[in-house]
Design a protein around this nucleic acid. Structure first.
Lengths: 154, 154
DNA sequence: TTATAACCTACTAAAACAGTATGTTATTTA
DNA sequence: TAAATAACATACTGTTTTAGTAGGTTATAA
């Protein structure tokens, strides 16, 4: 089982989209700046998110990405899944052939754990996240920081 | 967050100890054979399990390892922890400095998830595992296989 | 004294991770 | 129509981790 920067970045970027998506398509450059994620890396992640139809894209100037569905119909588990991080904790990918073709002593335990994690993460939607008090505080601070940066540029 | 072969091996080996420990100390060679885990790799894992005082050792012929506590006082979370696999899902190890010194947008989510997983795994003891029907079936099959191997050797 | 099995340290091939680099293509705007 | 923008695509790379191997030393029971 893996839960690394890749999955975290994907969820963070999608939440950023959910928070700012009302102003039309959001460019990866914007997300990159706000969330401090390398642009090239975001591009790779969004290629997968697009394949899984979690986002849709608009090319050209003023273009960017939009959520492909409303924010309460996208959950965290499917975002992590889309960027190829498996939530599965078994060594056999659930096949049950972990010990010379049969299940290993602890197969059931890891299978249970996987379901537990999946249940937890699939119950959390982008919509529920963006309405959390703590998320809103962080989002507010981030937009203030960006404003400062922008005015410094001018 | 990592949950890989290392943590799985450690839990499997500890469960093997719990299942067979009534016959005195169990050698790593036995566990290696039953659970199909490389002996050298087991030695490295047990060095850490011993440091964390989850097992005690007996050297010399007939020696091996014992659980350092009764099986219902050892839970899966501490075994995984002992072999250096962190259950923590945050990128900042819970410090909350994941976004230029402050928390990132999704810090709270990963923190929640970590607690969820920890609560689940720390609620499962070796004792509860060894009394599970499925575990007993697998253990039975394994001891039969070993018996066949032994009689073939003779 | 010999065999056993823990204990210890260094090394290694392969994979994954996170990121960089260098483009091409579609679309808007001046 | 040219320039700028931003998605889209692919190949490459340094670093770390993983899982395991190799080659010992030390303690103890038979």
């Amino acid at each position: 089982m893996r839960l690394t920067t890749r999955g975290r970045y994907a969820v963070t970027a999608m939440l950023d989209l959910a928070l700012h998506g009302d102003k039309g398509p959001i460019s990866l450059a914007d997300i990159s700046q706000r969330q401090e994620i390398s642009l090239s890396y975001l591009e790779q992640l969004f290629a997968k998110l697009r394949q899984q139809e979690l986002v849709s894209s608009v090319r050209g100037p003023g273009g960017g990405y939009r959520l492909a569905r409303v924010s309460d119909e996208i959950n965290v588990a499917e975002i992590i899944d889309a960027v190829n991080e498996s939530i599965d904790a078994t060594s056999c990918s659930g096949k049950g052939n972990c010990h010379s073709g049969d299940v290993c002593l602890t197969h059931h335990l890891w299978d249970d754990l996987s379901h537990q994690i999946h249940r937890f993460l699939s119950g959390i939607t982008l919509d529920s996240l963006m309405h959390q008090h703590e998320v809103q505080l962080v989002a507010l601070r981030q937009s203030e920081l960006i404003d400062v940066n922008v005015s410094q540029k001018i």
